[in-house]
Simulated assay, not measured.
Amino acid sequence: MTAPVRKTEAEWQAELSPEQYAICRCSATEPPFTGAFWDHHADGVYGCVACGAALFDSTAKYDSGSGWPSYWQPMAREAVALKEDGSHGMRRTEVCCAACDSHLGHVFPDGPKPTGLRYCINSAALRFRPR
């Protein structure tokens, strides 16, 4: 694991687009079926748009029908941090980049085998690197 990425909010705002900043630093959500990666099928690695940390491999990506990129597991358990999220009157588990604490999306217990998990991630929080 690498050292945590620490930046001021002004630095994050300067480096990220307004949409990326709203999602990664303010926990916003992009509308379903609008992001670059919800229907993306190339072979490679999806990393954090804010810090570049490798998060999800394309081999764990599947079509959940939700309109957001979905994965049944991260590349490594240590790549993501899970937090309880009680916002909007719901109880969910937030998924953040473990390296820079950027909000990525949420994880739900309705995914495919072998994990049964659906990591539902915002496209704007990701950067794709082809293999």
Rank of each mutant, 00 (worst) to 15 (best):
E15S: 15
C26Q: 09
R92W: 04
G35E: 01
E78Y: 01
C26W: 00
W68D: 04
Y21I: 13
P4S: 07
R127G: 10
A22D: 06
N122M: 12
A99P: 00
H106C: 09
C97I: 12
E84R: 15
D110T: 08
F37M: 03
T8N: 10
E15N: 11
P18K: 03
T34W: 02
P74V: 10
V80T: 15
L16T: 02
H40S: 02
P112G: 07
C96I: 10
A76I: 02
W72Q: 02
L55T: 06
H41W: 11
G89N: 00
W68L: 07
M90P: 03
P31K: 04
D57S: 14
S64A: 13
Y62G: 09
V5K: 07
G116N: 04
V95Q: 01
E11S: 01
L16F: 07
C24E: 07
R77H: 09
K61M: 07
E94P: 02
A53T: 13
T93H: 01
W72Y: 14
G67Y: 03
A42P: 03
C100K: 10
E78N: 00
F128T: 12
H103I: 11
A22K: 13
M75H: 01
Y119T: 08
T2I: 00
I23D: 02
A10L: 04
G89T: 04
E11R: 02
A10I: 00
G52V: 12
A22N: 05
A53M: 08
C96V: 14
A28D: 14
M1F: 14
V95D: 05
P32C: 09
T29N: 04
T2R: 04
E94H: 05
H106A: 05
D63E: 13
P74Y: 06
L126H: 04
A42W: 00
E11M: 06
A99S: 15
R118W: 11
T115N: 07
V107S: 08
W12C: 05
W12G: 04
A125T: 03
E94D: 06
R129N: 04
E78M: 01
T29W: 09
Y71E: 01
G105P: 14
G111I: 10
N122L: 11
V5F: 04
A54N: 15
G89E: 01
A54T: 11
S70Q: 00
F33W: 10
P4H: 09
A99Y: 01
H88L: 14
G67M: 10
L82I: 11
M75A: 15
Q13C: 00
Q13N: 06
E84Y: 01
A54Q: 13
T93E: 06
L16Q: 03
M90N: 11
Q73A: 15
D43C: 03
S87D: 03
Y62M: 09
P31T: 02
